[in-house]
């Protein structure tokens, strides 16, 4: 039997005006038909930091993440505001394709295109008007280096992306996203399909990438959240219960539900 926790007692941090924010949501709610999957999420994400979203399955963390770049548009109703550079990108007249170039996404299962490694990176770039050969070559190398994959694939760029291992495929997906030069990178449990060695590589990559990008990562793995994130948000049954610096959350959780979740005596 799952313990009952009050949704009124939450501990969600806010940031002062000095902190520059990459993204901020105000009263974000998500409905799948009549199912109210996300209640009033008020979260702000500081620039060039990794924020981890943790919580049990069905807590709404992936739903929340996918709303940030409007990937839920066709399957859910999302209300509330998503502030990005002073613009509410949850408005219906916003160009969602433009938004997704600024807010990239990496998915749970590696999903490289059934094309060569090179084309995985260049396809979307060329579709967006980057045609210059030297620039494309530069972007390929830069993004693959950024995703710590360059040394492993630099001699086989024309090989099929599907011939790579799962961990390499996931890093290729990261490279593909950062090749678009986004501001924000959303990752939806990027390591859940990977072995521990590949996981370490992806984590090292993310720690390196936060110098240039703001990263929001959904993870089931609390150790992973503790290892790489600076801020951590805990979701429970569609509510944001606690949002604090990662150190605080794991050493001194503010409310009982978080305490129970991270100590494993949940439910």
């Amino acid at each position: 039997m799952l313990k009952q926790y009050s949704f009124d007692k939450t501990a969600v941090q806010t940031f002062d005006a000095q902190t520059s924010l990459a993204l901020k949501t105000e009263d974000l709610q998500v409905f799948y038909g009549t199912n109210h999957a996300m209640h009033d999420a008020n979260l702000a994400f500081p620039k060039n930091q990794i924020t981890a979203l943790i919580g049990a399955s069905g807590s709404g963390k992936s739903t929340y993440l996918r709303s940030l770049n409007r990937m839920n548009d066709t399957i859910a109703t999302v209300t509330g505001k998503i502030w990005y550079h002073g613009v509410d990108i949850n408005e219906p007249n916003v160009n969602i394709y433009e938004i997704r170039r600024h807010i990239g996404m990496v998915f749970q299962r590696p999903n490289p295109f059934a094309k060569s490694i090179r084309e995985n990176i260049t396809y979307a770039l060329r579709a967006n008007g980057v045609k210059n050969k030297t620039e494309l070559t530069e972007r390929i190398e830069k993004s693959l280096r950024g995703a710590a994959l360059w040394d492993e694939v630099k001699d086989s760029l024309d090989k099929s992306a599907l011939s790579l291992s799962g961990g390499q495929q996931q890093r290729l997906c990261i490279a593909r996203s950062i090749a678009m030069a986004p501001d924000v990178l959303l990752l939806d449990e990027p390591c859940s399909a990977l072995d521990p060695i590949s996981t370490v590589k992806v984590e090292e990559t993310l720690l390196e990438l936060q110098k240039q990008y703001t990263i929001i990562i959904v993870t089931h793995n609390m150790q992973q959240a503790a290892r790489i994130s600076s801020q951590c948000a805990f979701f429970h049954l569609g509510h944001v219960m606690e949002y604090t610096p990662t150190g605080t959350m794991f050493s001194n959780p503010q409310i009982p539900v978080t305490q129970d979740y991270i100590s494993g005596s949940f439910g």
Binding site: M71, F113, A124, N128, R176, S177
Partner: peptide, 27 residues
Amino acid sequence: VPRSQREAGLSLGLSKWKTEVGIILPV
């Protein structure tokens, strides 16, 4: 063709049509 291929295309800012013709159709 797996749904994840469509999501990959859309998440890179490709339009639905471009995803369809350039990524899904070849597979």
